[in-house]
Write a protein that binds this DNA or RNA. Structure first.
Lengths: 338, 338
DNA sequence: CTGAAAGCGCTTACAG
DNA sequence: CTGAAAGCGCTTACAG
């Protein structure tokens, strides 16, 4: 920058002023500076500016596992929203491990991010490190929470599960089970509870929730085998995630159980593969979630906020069955449902 | 830091020395410094250190679209490899747009990343900005290239497509078509050429490659309709990506064309959904790709390197058909194939 | 409108 | 082993 100043015959202050555009500068000098920048191939140093400004114009996003298909869409939307304010994103992956998560929080903070968007790995075990971070910098919890007094953007699980249960009931289900309770993730815990409440409201006999270690396809397969071994499948199986449902479907198919003929199956999150797999799912609008989280970060509040987005059911073949109301009219009405 | 020094009764230099661990410091002072850090709740500033050290200990990863399922696995592996060297990653999404990509390169460079891992949006249009970046900082191209004289980590497409074609031939295919040529992505262009070469070698009649605007499910559906409208499907359809194949499968199914009975279909990349969909695909080992790219970045060379990873075919139901050799033994041998 | 000066928080020769 | 000093590249009151 000094070199540019010398080349342009002005002071460094002036160079800075034309570059930041903060103040008026006479056109002649402005032009001289611009010419000098070109000529010398000058590239401003954002780190130095950040140090001086005490703001890095960046936020950290920390997710448990970037390979979990719900995160890319959220991250992308958040990134876009933040880009509007010229803020960029430092992304970290916690490897589904609270120790790694704590380390990542540390490096993010050391890098002086202006804020944090984090989806905690574990409801309880993530709390201490997250609390320490939240004390230092604006923080928004994404999709799951570990702290109740820190901003949170999530899904209205009651709404989602009620839609699922109503849909299943309309398809004639009288008994159902929820696969995927897990107290390490607030979202799954809430979903399980919401499912039970909705079943009670709609007169569906809910079997005890099946707890999983993790909502992935492998556990879907495992629990499908368990359910089959136990014998007497319920009319419907509601899964806590799409991947869980995929694993379950594969295993059911292998066992000769047909879906939707023999059992109705639903997933959750409506990831792209749910469409190919013809799996009925609950769409969370991941982009909205990311955008909303970014907004909370930009517009701080003194009291913690909880934003719940309403999801919408997406009906597909995995629950295709004429509803009793339409039975008389024939099965052709199916496609227009949901 | 000054405060810590005062509290500990030493100089700032000493504080720095105990924090970086660069030099010996007498235990008493070391302890005093550590105590003072605790007491004051001191947090080091990585930005200032980076400014002084002229190294931010971070690299930028720029992908065309983080929602493309091949990237999360690559990013994650690269992040892990870099974390070994205490380097962290700043992730940007180019929105599949070369203008956005150029802007992102700019912010990354301004943030003084020590290196760049980029998958170029477009083979030709991404070149100028990428060249400018590569001149300033070590750069590795990921999966696709825009520059031939800059490090590149990609797939050995000849090997992959040869495996596909041999597999199809063993399943009795005599005619085939490749869906997904696109000159904007070096990977797809190479794949199309490799397919044609392999067909020629193996005596399969290859129809003219179908060019797509983009290798996603929508275009898979569109081209399935085109192929159907044209009439007379070939024995096999090799797709440039899994998503293309998914879209194609959905549309074929809707038209009453059975896979694998009526036509064999393959995808590419072996994303998780390929497993659920029982789609035969080509596994690229995404983690290896990310790891390898990170390594090239850490170990610079004066001459540009090109690393090609050998992919492996993963045979699934979408190409399940007894090979002529096994026909006599019956279809039970199927599962052990590929 | 503009320049000189101070300072953001660190690190590292340099001299003891 | 340790301190004083300089400097990384910026920005912004302050005084003109």
């Amino acid at each position: 920058m000094k070199d540019v100043a010398r080349e342009a015959g002005v002071s460094a202050s002036t160079v800075s002023r034309v570059l930041t555009g903060a103040t008026r500068v006479v056109p002649a000098k402005r032009a001289a500076v611009e010419r000098a920048c070109k000529k010398l191939g000058y590239h401003p140093d954002g780190l130095a500016a950040a140090l001086r400004n005490r703001s890095s114009q960046s936020v950290g996003i920390l997710v448990p596992d970037i390979e979990n298909p719900i995160f890319p869409a959220v991250i992308r939307a958040a990134e876009h929203e933040l880009a509007l304010a010229a803020v960029d994103v430092v992304l970290c992956d916690a490897d589904n491990d609270v120790a790694v998560e704590a380390r990542r929080l540390d490096t993010l903070l050391r890098r002086r991010v202006d804020g944090l968007l984090v989806c905690p790995v574990h409801r309880e075990h993530s709390a201490p490190a997250l609390r320490a971070a939240a004390l230092r910098v604006p923080t928004v919890q994404l999709d799951r929470y570990a702290l109740t007094d820190v901003d949170f953007v999530g899904t209205d699980q009651d709404s989602g599960m009620r839609q699922v249960v109503e849909h299943l009931r309309d398809r004639g289900a009288r008994t159902a089970v929820f696969v995927g309770g897990y107290r390490g993730m607030s979202s799954l815990t809430e979903r399980a509870q919401a499912f039970e409440r909705a079943c009670a409201e709609h007169g569906i006999a809910a079997r005890p929730t099946v707890d999983v270690r993790f909502p992935d396809a492998d556990n879907g397969r495992r629990h499908a085998r368990d359910l089959l071994a136990r014998g007497g499948l319920p009319d419907a199986i509601a899964c806590a995630s799409d991947e869980l449902a995929f694993g379950l479907l594969v295993e059911l198919r292998a066992a000769g159980v047909r879906c939707p003929e023999d059992v109705l199956v639903t997933g959750h999150d409506d990831i792209p593969a749910a469409g190919y797999m013809e799996l009925t799912s609950v769409n969370q609008s991941l982009p909205d979630k990311g955008r909303e989280a970014a907004r909370l970060l930009r517009h701080q509040s003194s009291s913690p906020r909880q934003v719940r987005l309403t999801p919408t059911l997406v009906a597909r073949t995995s629950t295709a069955r004429p509803s009793p109301a339409y039975a008389a009219a024939g099965p052709a009405a199916e496609g227009s449902h949901g």
